[in-house]
């Protein structure tokens, strides 16, 4: 299980945000993306997830092994916590809903509608999906937003366990997480040097 990114350039709209991003990860690695707001952390994660296309460069990773969690929690308010998770279990074809609910301390809330959860509880529910998916590569965009210290620790622990079990995690965060195997990648070094015009009309796409 590896991820290999070679000279990836990403654009957001017509503007190029990252140039020549290179890294390679193998089983057990955890990569933390750092950089100020707007540097392109989310854009890079979306490219890794296959949701966006890189404008150039090559990316080698197994898309069948990806579990992605974005800014939004992908939680349905009209469903209970248990229903939300069993839906994702059905999508990913796994059946560990009960264990995951217990592991993330959601037992007491299992029959509550997601509309009545706090922001942090919703975030935990969104992250419980990652464990539930039973996939090897975790891509997480700011997983620690709106979590308290205790649950930030729980997330860091889940990520460490995941990497220890041979998985790979790529995440963006502004906090210092206690993950032993973590490497840090500062995206500031990949800011484009010259202002390249990536307008689709000039590239001949039309």
């Amino acid at each position: 299980m590896t991820i290999k990114a070679t000279n990836i350039c990403c654009s957001r709209g017509p503007r190029q945000v990252l140039q020549d991003v290179c890294f390679s990860l193998t089983s057990g690695d955890c990569l933390i993306l750092r950089g100020p707001n707007g540097v392109g952390k989310s854009t890079l994660l979306r490219v890794l997830a296959g949701l966006s296309q890189q404008s150039s460069g090559t990316l080698e990773l197994d898309h069948e092994e990806i579990a992605y969690s974005g800014h939004l929690d992908a939680v349905k308010f009209q469903l209970t916590i248990a229903e939300n998770l069993s839906f994702w279990a059905g999508v990913y074809g796994t059946d560990t809903t009960a264990q995951v609910i217990a592991h993330f301390g959601l037992n007491d809330l299992a029959d509550r509608y997601a509309a009545n959860l706090s922001a942090g509880q919703k975030r935990r529910l969104g992250l419980a999906r990652m464990t539930l998916s039973n996939r090897k590569i975790w891509l997480m965009d700011e997983p620690t937003t709106s979590l308290d210290a205790e649950h930030t620790g729980l997330i860091a622990q889940s990520i460490s366990d995941h990497c220890f079990a041979g998985g790979i995690a790529v995440l963006s965060t502004h906090l210092d997480l206690d993950i032993p195997s973590a490497k840090t990648l500062d995206l500031l070094q990949f800011i484009p040097t010259k202002d390249t015009n990536t307008s689709i009309f000039l590239q001949g796409s039309f």
Binding site: A49, G50, L51, A67, Y68, H71, L72, A74, V91, R129
Partner: peptide, 14 residues
């Protein structure tokens, strides 16, 4: 799309 479910579904096995 609004609550992010579509992004996750697009990266799911379906």
């Amino acid at each position: 799309h609004e609550d992010g479910t579509l992004d996750v579904l697009a990266t799911s096995p379906l």
